[in-house]
Write a protein that binds this DNA or RNA. Structure first.
Lengths: 337, 337
DNA sequence: CGAGCGAAGTGTTACGTATAACGTCGCGGT
DNA sequence: ACCGCGACGTTATACGTAACACTTCGCTCG
């Protein structure tokens, strides 16, 4: 189905309205006050409507060297978390006349070298979360303004960063469990090399190290419910004193931990306390409901977009982590002494 | 942080290599066989590398009138289902040298009129799922080749459609429950006006109508776990014979149904059988695991992309629904007679 | 009465690329 | 001696838009 004849251009509209192309551009660009009479303006608008004229954005982008469009790169679409990030970013963007386009960073989908090769045509900047280093340098090579979400402020090659208060969240989880009397911990860690997960491990270890008599073991698992289940079953079956608290890197891993506990005949929270991180819908679908750390994904997206706008306008982005909140539900309790 | 000086153009590369801009275009476009000597070609490539040259895609798009980029519009990012759709579409696209960009159709994020206003600059076509009718006509107005996912073949204004075998899936669910002996059904329906949900309702009603003595009630709920819980609690508490089978429009609604059952003191599946549709990770995180219909999201995405490529090349897209599969787990059983 | 000014436009150019059309040069064939 | 041709490039142009610089004309003001 070929594109009919060919799309009408502003020149076609001009001819139909009996004016010059420049006049059409002025009218449709809303810059005609005092330059074109109301009657001619209306004639132009009418002609445009008649022909079904749509400006060719490739041409406009070329002319203006700017697109009012931004790319949001997300690690994967497997959780609703990034849906929230997108929503927040899109809201702020819309307020400033910007659009947001998503690019899930491919994992096994073609070479990682061309995340934007295709889209870059229409981009003013990039917001990226947990991105491979080579892709990162590719963007920097493109000189595209870049904001990193939840990334190492040191290693981000000078790009602006916006971070959640993950460290604070992990500390709150640790404090909560310590207060309940737990001393033997298992950390179910995400099997993904990323700063945001490194921080979780470091902070948990650091906090527990301040309390004498605590033990901490760690096991890594892929971020999937069944991967987590397998890893947790193995780790919990190991000899030695069984941990009474299972700290998971995110809610999905926690869901796997529930399955592991069921399989081993352990009751939550009587035999073992479980915590997550994210506060997804999944958290309240579990039985008992999951004690977790609520991350405000939308606020995260908003702050990311605001930072990018700041960079685009030559300002310095705001600093400071986004606060998080411990949500205590039924999956944590006192350990059986 | 301004863009350094300004990006190097092909002309800059030409000057550095001591050739014309046309030669640069030929070499970098890999069309130089028999037109440029190997040594000059190498000199051009070297200069391009040196300057860090990247072609301006806006200019290229303008020149070629084509972008090798495609937009995937998804209704929301709240489930992993569309992650699979994207993965499949991107895989096929990559094999054909195309890229895919995502656009979550905004719900309350700015006017619905500009889903692509921003991105359209760089698009050859659109794959869209459950799209509002006005946005649909907007695309058609843009003359952009369009493939609709899971949409009414009749009402799609002549656009190509690729559909899952939802009807077949619903019929399998109904058959399974009827076979177990259920006669009193509650349909927990998604509160979203969309063909894909209409079909579920129609097919379920049609199938049950063929068996004398069955009853079917319906209640609508927003697609969220807690929205579904509320709706299900209300519906199940209504007077009259309590349904023994609860058919949910998707897995997320089913998770809400579990919560409702817990709240009402009903055991699954002894007191009530529950079914979902999607087979998300959520399905096996529930206790007992959910009987549901597995949709092959990746295959769905692949078929969608293949259809769009067919349209772009003037071919006729393949026909036929994508098969689905009933997965029986622990959430369905015989009703207490 | 002429300078000046605002309204209402138009002519032209540039953005960076891809490619069709055009040169030039040396050499082999007749 | 001259034509033709392949190798190696270059020149020129168009894609559709936005915006700068300019023109024309009727009026007002000093």
């Amino acid at each position: 189905m070929a594109r009919g004849s060919t799309r009408p251009t502003s020149r076609d509209v001009a001819q139909a309205a009996g004016v010059s192309q420049a006049a059409v551009s002025l009218v449709l660009g809303d810059k005609w006050r005092g330059r074109v009479s109301e009657s001619t303006a209306e004639r132009v608008r009418e002609a445009a409507r008649e022909l079904g004229y749509r400006p060719n954005l490739a041409a406009r982008n070329l002319r203006l060297g700017r697109t009012r469009t931004v790319l949001l790169v997300v690690p994967a679409l497997t959780t609703e978390f990034f849906a929230g990030v997108y929503t927040g970013a899109a809201r702020v963007a819309a307020q400033h006349g910007f659009g947001v386009v998503l690019y899930p960073s491919p994992e096994g989908v073609g070479p990682a070298r061309d995340p934007f090769a295709s889209a870059q045509a229409a981009l003013d900047g990039v917001i990226a979360s947990s991105m491979a280093a080579d892709a990162l340098t590719a963007i920097r090579g493109d000189q595209l303004p870049l904001v990193m979400l939840d990334s190492d402020p040191e290693g981000s090659l000078g790009a602006a960063t916006v971070n959640l208060g993950i460290r604070d969240g992990v500390r709150q989880v640790a404090d909560h469990l310590l207060e309940l009397g737990h001393r033997h911990f298992l950390h179910l860690a995400a099997d993904v090399p990323s700063w945001t997960f490194d921080v979780r491990a470091r902070e948990l270890a650091a906090r527990l190290a301040t309390v004498p008599g605590t033990t901490l073991r760690t096991t890594a698992a892929p971020i999937s419910i069944d991967g987590a289940r397998t890893a947790a079953v193995t780790a919990l079956a190991r000899p030695g004193p069984r941990p009474t608290a299972l700290v998971c890197d995110d809610d999905k891993l926690a869901a796997g931990a529930y399955k592991a506990a069921r399989r081993l005949g352990l009751r939550v929270p009587d035999d073992i306390s479980i915590t997550g991180l994210d506060d997804l819908a999944l958290a309240t679908a579990l039985d008992p409901e999951l004690t977790t750390v609520r991350l405000d994904a939308e606020l995260f997206g908003e702050r990311g977009m605001e930072a990018l706008l700041a960079v685009l306008e030559g300002r310095t982005p705001a600093e400071g982590d986004i606060p998080v909140e411990l949500v205590v539900r039924g999956s944590t309790g006192r350990p059986a002494s």
